[in-house]
Design a protein around this nucleic acid. Structure first.
Lengths: 337, 337
DNA sequence: ATTGGCACTCGGGATAAAAGAGTGCCAGGC
DNA sequence: GCCTGGCACTCTTTTATCCCGAGTGCCAAT
């Protein structure tokens, strides 16, 4: 029902609109792209496209503008992910290679994505739930207070104060630390839950209540969604385009971890690239916004997600290319460390 | 040379302008504040104030607008820090009390400040340089690779990968860890520099090159300005007022750690509140912006700074009150943990 | 199916006039 | 000497009107 030319017209409309920000008319279209037909023909095609909901006109006698549905079709069938230029690839590589630690990797990734796409970048920290324990450390602060430090194989370091029911001495701490590490080292953090039954038996009776307190804090940090940390950047890119309306909504959404998580949550668990266009985003106030996201991680395992957020009128192939490439490189970096 | 009434007029102009965003004229002024004189009298006063550079008119026959110099006078002599309402104090207390760890304290502080002032909040992490070491941990990752974890008495946890020149075994790691902790525990981190000469003697000969590598990483993380971490929030508040111009500049400045540090750097080292108005800010592009900042820390010691950033046209007394109160509470929280 | 022709629509820019807000200054009053 | 009412003047802002042009939809012809 949509022949090849109509699809070509839709593609042309989207490409033009994305680059000019202005509704595009039949005349402009035949000029700019070398379609070998007359404007009138294009108008007929446009009428059909409009009837089917792929494009719309802001008002009578203005050019056409793509609808969400139009972008959807474009992304699904009319475009390919655009590979980055060699220069861009090199830039990514050198930029990420210099990172010191996980915080730095994440921070650099955000900057990189924002710069490449000239849009807002969102990056989630590798999930605690999926990571394995590399080391657990207990540091005494006061007689009845410890600092629990958790280091994962993705390089993430979590810290948490533990209030103990009873005072504890160095030896007991050492024992507890040894047991915890013996049980959890190299294993997925989720296994900590299994310890609940196992732990008391391995601990001197007098320290069991304290051990339970430590464990419960450990489980807590695992359970809490708060730990799904998300970072963003590139908001300055929002100010430049004629996007002032809705800008506030976007900034608000970005600062609300919960909302960000929801946005990323819609990304599938695979390494594929997900595109949510306009109203497809469940989040209120982001209906003029698209989100291009993907999972990343060391190897196949998806440890976390990253995304780019911009107006529905964005360069999808380019953005998708950048998201894809950056996710891959970050994965490599994580695998190496 | 400026009698009481002229000062009152300046104050009135600023208060009105801040709340209405519109140039304020002589008529409006006598109506709103009950000055017992006629508009004509006020006009004369205004003429003087303008001549002296405290106010200006955007164009002939518009009302007057305060200049930077006018705000300066207002802040220095015409206003008092406005104490927060009991409700606000309680809100601060409960909001900050629930924090888990340092990251959480900082994150909550940012939100709190942004919410209280309806502006952009900037908070710096407690300085590594001044903090004392609470514990140093070495975690083996690969035979010739360690993770160095540094925990300070302010609750800050820093991590850093160390590439060793030679492979190392568990025993050597334990020795190194013991020596490092023995030397540095409870002492200011800056003392690490002294270790350079001291360390080799305490370490088995075979491990000295490795020990040196660890130490150099430790010193590096101390030296690097990168470690002066700064966090901000509340950018959504920028979008609401008629501030669209310059918005991009502000967002850009916020995402540039270096710029942010420069902004905070101008804050004095004392616990007093510093106000930088408009062009007084050295940072390009923030000339329509004021920064209200102060130091905070456990006890008297200033560990870091926090600030609120907004248009020169801001509620200075209120903002200063919020900044002051929040800084004090955060200090308390830090001292407690 | 495509095309050229044509009447029609509607937003946006230009121009003009009117409205308003505020000023500066002066001459008179307390 | 300071304050005040009055008044002419200056600009911005608003409103109204007009016109232009881009773009459309439709139709008859190829």
């Amino acid at each position: 029902m949509l022949d090849d030319r109509k699809l070509a017209v839709l593609r042309a409309i989207i490409e033009d609109y994305v680059s000019t920000t202005e509704p595009v008319g039949s005349k402009t279209l035949v000029d700019r792209h070398n379609l070998d037909v007359s404007p009138a023909t294009i108008r007929n095609d446009m009428a059909v496209l409009e009837e089917q909901g792929y494009i719309a006109q802001p008002h009578t006698s203005a050019g056409r503008v793509p609808t969400d549905k139009g972008y959807r079709l474009f992304v699904d069938r009319l475009s390919r992910v655009k590979p980055l230029s060699p220069a861009e690839r090199r830039a990514i590589e050198t930029f990420l290679a210099g990172a010191y630690d996980l915080d730095d990797v994440v921070a650099r990734t955000v900057r990189l994505l924002a710069q490449l796409t000239r849009q807002v970048a969102v990056v989630q920290y590798p999930s605690l739930r999926i990571s394995s324990v590399r080391h657990i450390e207990l540091v005494p602060i006061m007689p009845s207070r410890l600092l629990l430090v958790l280091i994962t194989d993705t390089g993430r370091v979590e810290q948490r104060g533990v209030e103990l029911p009873e005072a504890i001495d160095e030896d007991s701490i050492a024992q507890l630390r040894a047991v915890l590490n013996a049980c959890l080292d190299g294993r997925p953090l989720a296994d900590a839950a299994l310890l609940a039954t196992d732990l008391p038996a391995r601990i001197a009776p007098g320290d069991r209540t304290n051990a339970a307190a430590v464990l419960s804090v450990l489980l807590e940090s695992l359970a809490e969604k708060k730990e799904e940390k998300v970072v963003f950047g590139g908001t300055a890119n929002l100010a430049v385009r004629d996007f002032s309306a809705g800008l506030r909504d976007v900034l608000e959404a970005l600062e609300e971890q919960v909302v960000l998580m929801r946005l990323l949550g819609e990304t599938g668990e695979s390494a594929a690239i997900t595109v949510k266009i306009g109203a497809e985003n469940a989040v209120e106030g982001l209906h003029d916004t698209s989100v291009v996201s993907t999972g990343y991680g060391a190897g196949d395992q998806v440890l976390a997600k990253l995304a780019v957020l911009g107006p529905t009128r964005m360069d999808y192939p380019g953005t998708m290319g950048a998201v894809h490439a950056v996710a891959r490189y970050v994965g490599q970096i994580l695998a190496e460390s």
